[in-house]
Design a protein around this nucleic acid. Sequence first.
DNA 1: CATGAATGAGTATTCATTCAT
DNA 2: TATGAATGAATACTCATTCAT
Lengths: 202, 202, 202, 202
Amino acid sequence: MPKSSERCREIREEMKEKIIKESMLYFAKNGFSGTKISDLAKYIGIGQGTIYVYFKSKEDLFSEIYRRINNSSDIKELKRLSHLPISARQKIHKLTQSIMENLKADKNYAAKVTLNTQMMLGEEDYASADTTYQSKLYQYTAQIIKQGQKEGSVVAGDAMKLSDYYWGVVYLYALKQLFTTSYEMISVKDLERILLKDEKNE
Amino acid sequence: MPKSSERCREIREEMKEKIIKESMLYFAKNGFSGTKISDLAKYIGIGQGTIYVYFKSKEDLFSEIYRRINNSSDIKELKRLSHLPISARQKIHKLTQSIMENLKADKNYAAKVTLNTQMMLGEEDYASADTTYQSKLYQYTAQIIKQGQKEGSVVAGDAMKLSDYYWGVVYLYALKQLFTTSYEMISVKDLERILLKDEKNE
Amino acid sequence: MPKSSERCREIREEMKEKIIKESMLYFAKNGFSGTKISDLAKYIGIGQGTIYVYFKSKEDLFSEIYRRINNSSDIKELKRLSHLPISARQKIHKLTQSIMENLKADKNYAAKVTLNTQMMLGEEDYASADTTYQSKLYQYTAQIIKQGQKEGSVVAGDAMKLSDYYWGVVYLYALKQLFTTSYEMISVKDLERILLKDEKNE
Amino acid sequence: MPKSSERCREIREEMKEKIIKESMLYFAKNGFSGTKISDLAKYIGIGQGTIYVYFKSKEDLFSEIYRRINNSSDIKELKRLSHLPISARQKIHKLTQSIMENLKADKNYAAKVTLNTQMMLGEEDYASADTTYQSKLYQYTAQIIKQGQKEGSVVAGDAMKLSDYYWGVVYLYALKQLFTTSYEMISVKDLERILLKDEKNE
DNA sequence: CATGAATGAGTATTCATTCAT
DNA sequence: TATGAATGAATACTCATTCAT
């Protein structure tokens, strides 16, 4: 019964996807220890037991989410952007615009950013985690920053520090997006200002 | 023969103070649900029972911390600063310097900022919480921002939004201070840039 | 595929009933503070957690038991009896016989009587609790007593006081039933003597 | 310093006496597990620690109370009464009058009766506790009952059973005395009726 | 596979007991 | 000796996980 088996796998995949997607938001809002499986299940709209059909444990579900975040396509995006034959100012502008749009449109994007940053903060010594999503994100951003510093469009300072600063602010507004119903989002200009000099001063 | 009741009250006050101070850091790092009373007690170096001599429950202890934060002297400081007969640029510079120093020197300051921001984020509708520490902090900061916008030293934009942005970044580095052992603190210049234009452009 | 929700409710109802019934005996024997949830669960033969699936707290379970006792069918029985067109002596005889049989046959009856009386004693001002099981029980009994006093078969004295006396003795033997393995139960005659004159003297 | 040492012992004795007397009432009302040392100390008006100066443990204090009750002078009274050269009716009347007076006048008497009966009920197999206060009390009472049955003044039935019944009712009214503020005490006649036939029928 | 009732290890809280003053 | 703050073992309660249906 290849067809039925096929369909079956499909259904399984869908449910698993649903759980991961919804859990991401819930975990981002409530944290790992602040999330009860019973509440999470109710939030998703499934039975508690169902979660254990797809994941060995609460921790396993969390890890799966972690893995998803790290395999995000955002890094490839950024990599591509960093190699484009355009000015750093333009790259930063494009990146910032894209981030702001994602933040506004997609709660899941905010959840991803939030969880990712929190994981990083939670790690004992995050400076050494060279292989993580975060550090790659940071590195490509740092590259652009260095390019911008050469071009004179980006403020002075250690590129990694500035990269860290920039993504920190992104995290900040991801939090706001998740937790507050009404708030004023900063403008693209505001976020760019973390890195870019005033145009007149170049 | 009652233990000199003066001395007794003193001892009680000291212990309560100690518990609150140490718990502040612990809660800031681990969150409410991530904090086990047994671990907290061990961390403070007292018996579990002792916490319950001074606080009705884990929640009660947390509320007490919240109350403390809201009665912080920082607001009065800022109020005083906002009324000084100096330029907004100078006020922002002083404020930023003071914050950076506090963050570096005092883990408890970082804990206060962290807890305070998290509480604010947790509230259902934080826009309406006019009477809280946060909103006063924001308001005085917004006043300075408006002054600066008139003087031409501060970037354009809604003053409250910029105030929120500024303190958000402070929160960000409070988190880094609490969670990471080695990181590069942003400079006073970096933080000021959230609000201040490049001096050459005024 | 939800477990046939009819069957589900049924199972829940059964378990709740089981817990209440068994707890009644255990609480009657050990008192509220003398009852540990862990021991109670072991006694019932279920996990500790199960109790908390059905009841919010130890106190909640106790209240539920209290409620059950007050909705007991015994009152309706007594009311019916009090309105029968027979002599008070006969009513008292029937009532006493019925009580003695219940006490002997049904440990749960003894538990009910015990808990009920203890609750009444525990109340601050039990004279005013007009609406409780106890007071209705007392009132119907007092009615029969008054009838008997008119008929000359019942001893002189305030009817409520005698009613209280009568049920007090019932409580006494409920206690003996619960606590002692071997004791001599008083006879129907002994209990009747609280209220009834010697037949020869009417 | 014999005088000082003498005085010292006296003070100690007084405090110990005070603790025992007050605890008796408190334990009678609240039971062993329902009594918290902190509450008891507050009730007595002393510090918690003070109790442990005089007693090794809560259980030790309770035992001491138990011992006191068993060494009560009441038994000797009853023994004396049982040997007087008067009719059983008169003995029962005197005993009943004395009990009623004690119950009304002295809360501590009620406490003694209560604790004593409760201890008896609590024992695994109280039929065998021949040496206890209770059984002596019962035995002397049973003797009087037997005398009365010979004299024709006491109702028929096993003497020990009737003795148990009689003292059970005394317990009942001791409870009422302890727990209720307003209640109608039964009359001497009511209590005697447990044992004595109507005078006209002898 | 989906469910939610049942479970017990884990966590919060209480309370008898200790001990420095 | 008297005290009440400090303690941790005992107890109440929660929640991740299992499992029969």
